[in-house]
Design a protein around this nucleic acid. Structure first.
Length: 294
DNA sequence: TGTCACACTCACCCTACATA
DNA sequence: TATGTAGGGTGAGTGTGACA
């Protein structure tokens, strides 16, 4: 089995025709026939069902097509990785505001020291925006918050098309006014407003899922974590943010906190397209985890 | 039934590699 | 360096199915 045989196999699978596959591959049809036959003999299965002139993939053929595609992609990635020019001079990274503020400074410092020749362009956004940007190839990778499995969300399906690896774990907090009595459940909340970031924010979605049983708590959208704390400190709202962000902000005595749940931060990139630069950034993240969830 | 398009077989050629 | 061998390519010939 070699890459040429895999390419010919995929061409026949795509065109459902030896002749058209041969034309596309720039080879004689007999060569295509021989290559496919040899592949079938080697694997010990029929990859195509020959119905007259029509070549259709068998069940085994469909299974093998998936592997053939991945093997070719992996081969290309390996060749690209060995080229001196493989390292891009620009790495486009997406991050949530919270992660950029609490985790990335040390990571980017380490990355820049190791690779001063690669510029990093940081794009901020919600987890939903960043996921779409990775899928659209607008950025190379992103740090997003994984929606907990018990919360139904269309974003979970988008992850099927991405390589996702847990990098950090954030403790999500409900922030209450200092004057508010301590709470154990959402039923204890005495205000009617939840200050949170944009709708695509996973932490907002987690908090809204938590407040839903109360029925009377509306979400007020604000533009920053400082604005969330300001709203809470004013006494008429609760807010949501990760503990790592809360610990960075100095609001002594103005608020109290209620731990909600842990949410994973994922490093995502398109399936099979993790570049050497992204891998270097990944290693920098593992070496510089920043504040840990409590 | 004849024609055309397509898949397959087979003979032959070329090239790379191992060996004397 | 010459020779043998294996692998992979091409092209001619053949069988088969679709279609007018």
């Amino acid at each position: 089995m070699d890459f040429t045989s895999l390419e010919i196999f995929l061409a026949v699978a795509e065109h459902a025709s030896v002749t058209r596959a041969a034309t596309a591959a720039g080879r004689a049809p007999s060569n295509v026939t021989n290559r496919v036959r040899a592949l079938e003999e080697e694997l010990g299965v029929e990859l195509f069902s020959r119905q007259g002139k029509k070549m259709t993939l068998t069940r085994d053929g469909r299974t093998f097509r998936s592997y053939a595609s991945r093997l070719l992609a992996l081969g290309k990635e390996a060749r690209d990785a060995l080229k001196p020019s493989a390292m891009p001079n620009m790495l486009r990274v997406g991050s949530m505001e919270s992660t950029a503020a609490t985790r990335l400074p040390l990571v980017l410092q380490a990355f820049n020291l190791a690779h001063p020749d690669i510029a990093v362009r940081l794009t901020m956004g919600s987890s939903e925006e960043l996921t779409r940007a990775v899928l659209a190839e607008e950025i190379d990778c992103a740090l997003i918050a994984r929606m907990p499995a018990d919360i139904v969300d269309a974003r979970s399906e988008m992850l099927d098309d991405l390589d996702a690896e847990p990098i950090y774990e954030e403790e999500v907090l409900i922030v209450l006014p200092a004057s508010h009595p301590p709470i154990t459940t959402v039923a204890d909340v005495r205000v009617t407003s939840l200050a949170a970031l944009e709708p695509g924010c996973t932490y907002r979605r987690v908090a809204e899922t938590w407040t839903r049983p109360a029925g009377s708590i509306r979400t007020t959208e604000v533009s920053s974590y400082h604005a969330i704390l300001a709203s809470v400190a004013a006494g008429d709202a609760i807010g949501v943010m990760p503990r790592s962000v809360f610990d960075l902000m100095d609001w002594p005595g103005a608020v109290r906190i209620h731990p909600l749940r842990a949410v994973q931060t994922l490093l995502v990139c398109r399936k099979g397209s993790r570049s050497p630069a992204v891998e270097i950034l990944h290693q920098a993240m593992l070496a510089n985890p920043g504040p840990s969830a409590r």
